Computed example of a mutant assay.
Amino acid sequence: MTPDFTFFDGHNDLLWHLHNQSDLTGASFFAGRDGALDVAKCRTGGFGGGFFALFVAGDDLPGADAKRPVDIDKARRVTFEMAAILVRMTRANPAKLRLCTTAAQIEEARSAGAIAAVMHLEGAEAIGPDFGELEMLHAAGLRSLGPVWSRSNRFGHGVPFAYPSTGDIGPGLTPEGLRLIAECERLRILIDLSHLNEAGFNDVAKLSSRPLVATHSNAHGLCPHSRNLTDRQLSMIAESGGLVGVNFGTRFLRADGQVDPETPVTLIVEHLKYLIDRLGEGGVAFGSDYDGTRVPAELETAAGLPELITAMQQAGFGASLIERICWGNWIGLIRRVVG
């Protein structure tokens, strides 16, 4: 049975897992893997594409509270190895997975029945002072970048995983960080604010001429976690015509900040409602964080995404709004920012 709606997703960590498992061709994504995403699960659930993150863990990971900086040589090596995995996957299986750099290519992939992958960099530790690595990654397909993960680097300061807390922690972007934003603007690379602290968020808002975007964050007003966005930040995103992708991670959904797989899917809908009230129907989408965080059991893999459709329908969301949240809002934002 074909799902009624197709999802475009703001964030997943599939490539990190493939790299950790030395699956350097991504073969398990096509043959079936023990994780949230593979081709069969995506097709079952209507997962039609998303941002595929290049993420370099510190030596103190796993564990979400890593703070030690990542050496640039390691970051450069691992980032380019992950990028190579994605390139190999799409070249070997273009009928199933396509590397896309524009909104038009994403729509073409959907029409052809292929999953659309947009390359995203989560934490810019691999980028050196002359920004040559940024140019190379852009040439390879990079179209989205978060300057930091939840730790400090040469460009700025990420928020730690803290509950209850806000992102009002530490100073803003460094001089290199300001230059990085300018380079992303020049290259039309989307700037992701999801892990950035409040002062860094403010700096991007001042510098950027494009819509403000948080690819995988939720509403601080419903869950006071440092990774979530305050009403003030949401107002700034709304004023810019930007977008927030709702994160499925239970610690970012629940009012108590707990990691609990028994979290109901209806909490995702509550965050959608809250964000729609502040951003409008065109400013909200999904950023699951699949393969990167603990999500509600009903959504453990992409095959469960129809459960989220059911929850939205039961909450009174009409078909047009559901289509916008699942697909249209992301594609429109990508078209405006990236091309």
Rank of each mutant, 00 (worst) to 15 (best):
T6H: 13
H11F: 04
N12T: 00
D13H: 11
W16L: 15
H17Y: 05
N20W: 10
N20P: 01
G26F: 07
G32V: 04
D34T: 15
V39P: 00
K41S: 08
R43E: 12
G45W: 04
G50P: 02
L54D: 14
D60S: 14
P62V: 11
G63C: 10
G63S: 13
A66L: 10
I72P: 10
D73A: 14
M82F: 05
A84N: 08
A84D: 15
R91I: 07
T102Q: 05
Q105E: 14
R110D: 00
A114Q: 08
A117Y: 03
H120T: 15
H120L: 07
G123Q: 06
I127W: 02
E133F: 14
E133Y: 12
E135W: 08
E135M: 09
A139M: 09
G141I: 09
L142A: 11
R143D: 14
V148L: 08
S150H: 12
F155Q: 02
G158W: 10
P160V: 14
A162N: 04
P164Y: 11
S165F: 01
G167Q: 09
G170F: 06
G177F: 02
R179D: 11
R186W: 13
D192I: 07
D192L: 12
L193F: 04
H195N: 05
E198W: 12
G200W: 07
F201W: 05
V204H: 06
L207T: 13
R210Y: 10
P211S: 05
V213C: 03
C223R: 00
C223K: 04
L229V: 05
L234P: 01
L234H: 02
S240M: 02
L243E: 06
V246E: 01
V246L: 04
F248D: 12
F252D: 03
F252W: 03
D256M: 01
D256V: 10
D260Y: 13
H271Q: 12
G283H: 14
D289E: 07
P296N: 09
A303P: 08
A303E: 08
G304I: 10
F317R: 02
L321F: 08
R324E: 10
C326V: 06
W327K: 00
I334P: 03
R335T: 01
